[in-house]
Structures are given as C-alpha cells and as structure tokens.
Amino acid sequence: SPQAEVMGKAKELFVLCDKESKGFITKRDMQRLQGELPLSPEQLEEVFESLDRRSNGFLTPVEFNTGLGELVGLEDTA
C-alpha cells in the first residue's frame, strides 16, 4: 500500500536526520539540517515541535513515522 511505502521511507529519512545514529533526533540535529534543507531555523523548530508529541525533546522513529503518516493521510483526503 502507499502508506506502507511511506513508512519504509520514513525510516530512511529518520536516518538522514539522526546524524550521530543515536536512535533519536534532537533539536540540535534539526538545526544541522539548516544548510541542507530549504527551511528556516524557525520552520525546522516548528517541525520538530510538531513531531515531538511527548514534548520531551527527543524525536523517536515512532513519532517521526506518525508525523509523516498523518501528513500522508492528510494529503490523501485533501
């Protein structure tokens, strides 16, 4: 299914953000993406906070996948 495909990609995208292969993403990791992605520091912070459901400062693969999955779900219905 397209959703399963997205979830597979989510893992690869997570690895791109998890620069030190810690198994989670911090705000510092997001800030490092600044030069690589066409997003402002503010936007990267917004993305982080949107995905960080528990607001504990760490993005787990599950939270990352959930965020991407919801986005795909939204796009399906749009």
């Binding site: 990609k9 690869e12 995208l13 791109l16 953000c17 690589e36 992605l37 066409p38 997003l39 936007q43 990267l44 917004e46 993305v47 906070e49 949107s50 965020g67 991407l68 986005l71 939204l74 796009e75």
Partner: peptide, 29 residues
C-alpha cells in the same frame, strides 16, 4: 484548516520538510 495545532508547524511546512528530505535522499548516492 482547524486541525492545525497552535505553535506547531503547518501542513505545508511539514510537507516541505519531508519532501526536501526525500529529494535529498534520492539526490545523493
């Protein structure tokens, strides 16, 4: 869209983030 959370990124920003990551991934070996 009322689903957008206060203080959170809009769908557009999130989409931009993921799309940019995707193209970064496909754009590099």
């Amino acid at each position: 869209d009322p689903n957008i959370k206060a203080g959170a990124a809009s769908e557009g920003v999130l989409a931009n983030f993921f799309n940019s990551l995707l193209s970064k991934k496909t754009g590099s070996p």
